[in-house]
């Protein structure tokens, strides 16, 4: 077992803008790696560098054992990529796109036909021979995924594969990602803004914010860093005073304010609820809502970056 991806100090600037400052990533063969970050964090830029579309400004990366700077052609043979926006030619039919894709990967005609049959389940019945400009957004996404799988890549990059999809299509993509990983052993590097997506799919998650990797680990590890339980208090009044009062409690590990909410990490939730409630009351704020739950990746993100992840609709 080796590493499918190894990046060291990888960074990219566009003029003055440091889109990606410096990231170190290791993705093991056979793993699903979730690259989580908000809009503009640098996810797509990292994907483009790892897939040989963009030259890094600094640092180095090896993909499937080959250096992105010197052996791009070797890498391209074995990776599949579905970029953030479905990249298709609307004036071809689904079948024509897949066929062309197969030919460019050196497949013979019978191989191309066989692969199209194998991938047909991704594309809605009937749609494959229609022009792509008649497809819905979700159908384009699936065709794009099929196109990136034509040559059975060992390593698959998916840049926000479910952004903008309805729940059914999202579930479908999730299921397909799991199937590719479990049945074919495909290594998957997946970017997302959705915490639940990273939680559901990824063996390991890297959290990127403003061009910097701020945390990494399995979803469970990351969540346990926040604490074993989280108390969320929605308050009105002097939030800062409430924060200070709660932070002084011994049972509280730490506290992150997020708007009118206080996200309070504790080791033993049940035992901490009442002291927290008392402290809040004593500080003079009105408590609109008090919830006890286990941490989510959202809490991890908040703790690491000081802000909740903002997702566009």
């Amino acid at each position: 077992m080796g590493n499918a991806i190894e990046a060291e100090g990888l960074g990219r600037s566009f003029g003055e803008v440091e889109a990606v400052k410096s990231v170190d990533i290791e993705v093991a063969d056979g793993e699903i790696y979730g690259f989580l970050g908000p809009n503009g964090a640098g996810k797509s830029t990292v994907v483009k560098m790892l897939t040989t579309l963009l030259k890094p400004s600094r640092g180095s990366a090896r993909v499937l054992g080959h250096d992105v700077a010197t052996a791009a052609d070797k890498i391209r043979l074995d990776i599949g990529v579905a970029l953030q926006d479905a990249s298709l030619d609307k004036k071809q039919s689904g079948r024509e796109i897949l066929r062309m894709q197969g030919r460019l990967y050196g497949l013979t005609k019978p191989e191309v036909d066989k692969r199209i049959d194998e991938l047909a389940h991704l594309i809605e019945f009937d749609a494959i021979d229609r022009m792509v400009d008649t497809y819905s957004g979700g159908m384009e996404r699936r065709l794009d995924l099929a196109a990136s799988l034509m040559h059975n890549p060992r390593l698959l990059f998916l840049d926000e594969p479910t952004t903008g999809l309805d729940p059914t299509s999202r579930a479908f993509v999730w299921q397909e990602v799991k199937r590719l990983n479990e049945e074919l052993g495909t290594t998957i590097f997946l970017t997302t803004q959705y915490l639940e997506e990273a939680d559901e799919l990824a063996d390991r998650v890297g959290i990127i914010n403003a061009g910097t990797l701020v945390g990494e680990g399995s979803p469970t590890e990351l969540k346990s860093e926040v604490g074993s339980d989280v108390i969320v208090a929605r308050v009105t009044g002097n939030v800062a005073a409430a924060e200070a009062a709660v932070a002084a409690l011994e049972v509280v590990d730490h506290i992150d304010p997020a708007g009118d909410e206080l996200v309070i990490s504790v080791t033993n939730g049940a035992a901490a609820v009442s002291p927290v409630a008392v402290a809040l009351d004593a500080s003079g704020v009105q408590v609109a809502e008090l919830t006890l739950r286990t941490p989510t990746l959202d809490d991890v993100f908040l703790e690491l970056t000081g802000a909740r992840i903002e997702v566009d609709a």
């Binding site: 080796g2 190894e6 063969d29 990967y105």
Partner: peptide, 29 residues
């Protein structure tokens, strides 16, 4: 850590894989 070239033996032998397609073939495609 050293990156190993992932071995083909880990995957079924009859899996269709990419290969360089040649200049003329690409041109015609």
């Amino acid at each position: 850590t050293a990156t190993t070239d992932l071995s083909d033996s880990a995957r079924p032998a009859d899996v269709i894989r990419a290969r360089p397609s040649g200049f003329l073939s690409d041109l015609f495609t």
